[in-house]
């Protein structure tokens, strides 16, 4: 199925938390500031119903997303008030992909853990947690994975400031 087909199917099964989709488009020739949007289409999901949505994606016969390929987050900018939580779903049966995005307010960066739906999410969520400071509620093992356990700050946030020293070791 192409993206439109998947989106229609999601609408048809009334996938919980589905709020819309975003398609790439060409630049508007009349508006000089508009450069359009390139790349992939993705669906937008309400973070409150994140796991329910993923569960539908996994269990629906025609969607059939058996694998969570990637789960990550993005900080689109210092001024932006949301994080993006991005997931890449893959269906081996139907040979299609789906990019899912949830907009998560920076003030309350908590989202349910997808580990119960896809165990692949386990390490990805640990990485997101340490890099962005997003809390994945219900994660079985929410420790740091790549960073030391005592690392202060969330490196992949745009407002992150590099530490001057680490345990007495100068970083400059």
């Amino acid at each position: 199925m192409d993206f439109q087909g998947i989106y229609d199917r999601l609408r048809a099964v009334d996938a919980p938390g589905l709020t819309g989709c975003d398609l790439p488009r060409d630049a508007d020739p009349e508006d000089k500031k508009d450069k359009g949007r390139a790349g992939d289409a993705f669906v937008l999901v309400d973070p409150a119903q994140w796991t329910q949505f993923l569960r539908v994606c996994r269990d629906d016969e025609r969607l059939g997303f058996e694998q969570l390929v990637d789960l990550t987050a993005t900080d689109p900018g210092k001024d932006d008030e949301n994080f993006w939580v991005n997931a890449q779903l893959l269906s081996l049966r139907h040979k299609h992909r789906l990019a899912v995005k949830a907009l998560l307010p920076k003030g309350a960066a908590t989202i349910a853990s997808a580990t119960a739906v896809y165990r692949a999410a386990q390490w990805h969520e640990r990485e997101c947690g340490e890099m962005f400071g997003i809390t994945f509620a219900g994660h079985p093992d929410p420790r740091n994975i790549l960073l030391p356990d005592d690392w202060a700050g969330y490196p992949l946030r745009k407002d992150y400031e590099f530490p001057k020293e680490y345990h007495g070791i100068s970083c400059e």
């Binding site: 790439p24 450069k35 359009g36 949007r37 390139a38 790349g39 992939d40 993705f42 390929v69 990637d70 990550t72 993005t74 689109p76 900018g77 991005n86 890449q88 893959l90 992909r97 990019a99």
Partner: peptide
């Protein structure tokens, strides 16, 4: 790079190597 986001997965010797890039132009 024009604004937008793309995920491309390729078959690396170890499995799917995915690059998710986001550009603001």
């Amino acid at each position: 790079v024009p604004p937008g986001e793309a995920y491309v997965g390729i078959e690396n010797p170890r499995g799917e190597l995915g690059h998710y890039v986001v550009s603001d132009g």
